[in-house]
Design a protein around this nucleic acid. Sequence first.
DNA 1: CCGAGCCGTTCCGTAAACGGAACAGCGGAC
DNA 2: GTCCGCTGTTCCGTTTACGGAACGGCTCGG
Lengths: 182, 182
Amino acid sequence: MAAAPPAGDHGAEEVGRRIRTLREERGLSLSTLARLAGVGKATLSGLENGTRNPTLETLYAVTAQLGVPLTAVLSGPAGTPTVRGAAVDATLLEVFTDTDATYELYRMRVSPGPPQLSPAHQAGVTEHVTVFSGVLRAGPLDAPLTAGPGEYLRWTSDVPHSYAAVGDEQVRASLLLRYPRD
Amino acid sequence: MAAAPPAGDHGAEEVGRRIRTLREERGLSLSTLARLAGVGKATLSGLENGTRNPTLETLYAVTAQLGVPLTAVLSGPAGTPTVRGAAVDATLLEVFTDTDATYELYRMRVSPGPPQLSPAHQAGVTEHVTVFSGVLRAGPLDAPLTAGPGEYLRWTSDVPHSYAAVGDEQVRASLLLRYPRD
DNA sequence: CCGAGCCGTTCCGTAAACGGAACAGCGGAC
DNA sequence: GTCCGCTGTTCCGTTTACGGAACGGCTCGG
């Protein structure tokens, strides 16, 4: 005992809790799920209790049998990296890698106050913003654009640019960054 | 039986490819990333080549150092809730619930061929599409719109509407559905 | 030309995740 | 009462993912 594995480990225990919850929601016993998923009972037991550091293969076998994506047990409130600035608070939701370019999709919140500046990116990088609520003023420093709810902005971000909320309302928007392949 | 998903292939190679892409985008060498992430070079090498079955701890160490969520390298075609039709294949990425409206953010692929029809939604629902690649023709049946890479479409979807790829290239886009609060 | 310093891959001993079996605890059948 | 079937946990031998070191390949610099 006491051999307690690194308790402060990342979300291993959180992952275990979610799997146990999902299993019990389905009325499955540990033994049954282990058999259906093709893993040992010891493996699943340790996994649910957070005393193991599961393999991707193991996790996939279990989550697939539960009928949920891997992200359902992994992505946690504390798990996703967030970029914070004076006014902008952006959470990276997804990364798409296509043949022509890589896309990063963020959910963005811009708080009222002075504009937040962002340095120039590599040549060819474009930003695409869809505003959900509030009024956003963003784009190149010398030619900012404005958009309200439901509207769309696009600019080439190889020059310094800024983000600002117009008025007192916080702006909520989705931000898509496109990095062309070299 | 039980509609077993591909048990052997859980996308280990796909995960490796994404990690390698993310690493190269950042201009990091394999050795450097391995040192920064605190894992062995052999581990990272095998991981990128798909010859290993990484543990959650290893994956987390690497993705955290790359500054992306685990979902960025895991989210695969399998497992995620997906809406499929004749031509359109959409994956739900995120749901935002704000005070004014609910937003559903999809990643969408439209394959070449005849248009896919979609019935009218509730009054006030709007759709917002940002095209990544290919040329998309979509919108109300009587007034469809066209957009190419980097362009944006918006229409009110309280009437029947359609989606179609123009030309032979598959269309990749992000689709934002906005449901106003009653 | 040759060594220095990187690159990424392969080799190898060790630590640990794995599945099967044995275990204790509980509830119902007879 | 005993037995059975089930629960979830623990023990244990096997498999394998791990990191350090050694390796071949490439690009510089002297």
